[in-house]
């Protein structure tokens, strides 16, 4: 049997899955940010006319899925798998979204790395000819995450400058065996890295080693240089984590400064409230599905490495003194005309 693997961690596709369509929906703060006009839909309130933050998040995710389906011109019955995940306990936003669709559902949790984990798994299903089309979606909601991970939303407290602001956003993509659009050429699944950072208000520092390890492995496995990519988009390292991550790679002789952008950094204008930048599954999902997918589709980028990074802790684990294990998955995507 022939395996489609390279090096230690990378899977390459003979028949490259196509990212047929992508849709991003965001809350008001994200809509006012620098990327505001790249999103398909901007809500004017964070409650979306629902009765709770959790219901609002699920609605947002549903909206992103509907839009992605519509843009691809597909019906529910065309899609063979729905893969989704979010930050809330028992990934309820995804489960309550999935009950609205007649599509086999796989729920996943990878914290902020969920989007690239989902796109990786979806590519395996499409590339392995187990599916014609796969929907991948993920979301986060600032207020729902706040009350679960930190304090009630109306509690007055100061955020440390290392803290990150969970984005109210959702992104969805449709992967297909055929069609027009950017194609996924390889996927590198990361290993969980833990360098003993215990401070949940400093997730960027905790996630940086995971990011560096996955990028390094991907480049090794593919025998490539950073210059082979037009963009390395990390998901939610924030301002501090980005610098730390680049520095860690520099130690291994890899310089990505010129082509690296972080979704958490570019989603918002800097402010003390936002702290080190955005975070949450929806952050990188909406930046990819909004801005980056379009630019790939139009050929402005030839090759992009999407590296979403996730901090896999919980408030319980942190209160018990545990450090924060982190993971990053890389998906390499080439523009349509490659």
């Amino acid at each position: 049997m022939q395996f489609h693997r390279r090096g230690t961690s990378t899977c390459v596709f003979e028949d490259m899955p196509v990212v047929v369509s992508a849709a991003a929906v965001v809350g008001p703060r994200e809509g006012k940010g620098p990327l505001g006009d790249t999103f398909d839909m901007v809500y004017s309130t964070t409650l979306l006319g629902e009765t709770s933050w959790e219901k609002a998040e699920s609605k947002m995710l549903r909206q992103a899925v509907d839009l992605a389906l519509a843009k691809a011109g597909l019906e529910e019955s065309d899609v063979d798998f729905l893969i989704a995940g979010d930050l809330l306990n028992q990934i309820i936003s995804s489960a309550y979204m999935a009950r609205e669709y007649d599509i086999p559902f796989l729920g996943i949790y990878g914290a902020c790395a969920t989007m690239s984990e989902g796109m990786g798994l979806g590519s395996f299903l499409v590339g392995g000819r187990f599916a014609r089309y796969v929907l991948v979606a993920s979301s986060s909601h600032h207020d729902a995450a706040e009350r679960q991970f930190r304090y009630p939303t109306e509690f007055g407290h100061q955020r440390p400058p290392t803290g990150q602001w969970t984005a109210t956003a959702a992104g969805a993509v449709v992967l297909g065996a055929q069609g027009k659009g950017p194609r996924i050429e390889s996927v590198t699944i990361g290993r969980v890295q833990d360098y003993g950072v215990t401070e949940p208000n400093d997730m960027g520092s905790a996630m940086a080693p995971g990011f560096a390890d996955t990028v390094w492995r991907h480049l090794q496995d593919m025998a490539r240089q950073p210059e082979d990519y037009d963009l390395i988009l990390s998901g939610d390292l924030g301002r501090i984590g980005s610098v730390v991550g680049r520095q860690l790679l520099r130690k291994k002789g890899i310089v990505i400064d010129e082509i690296h952008q972080d979704a958490g950094v570019i989603l918002y204008d800097p402010s003390p409230e936002v702290g080190a930048g955005g975070s949450g599954c929806g952050c990188v999902a909406s930046v990819f599905a909004g801005k980056v997918w379009k630019e790939l589709y139009e050929g402005q980028y030839k090759r992009v490495l999407l590296v979403a990074t996730g901090a896999l802790h919980s408030p319980t684990a942190c209160q018990q003194g545990e450090s924060i294990p982190c993971v990053a998955h890389a998906v390499s995507i080439v523009s349509g005309d490659h």
Partner: peptide, 21 residues
């Protein structure tokens, strides 16, 4: 892939340069 105590300490020292005051 969990860093040992020595690596953890080295990383925490390394981070000092990047922490915003």
């Amino acid at each position: 892939t969990k860093a040992n105590i020595r690596e953890q300490e080295a990383y925490s020292v390394f981070l000092e340069d990047f922490r915003p005051k």
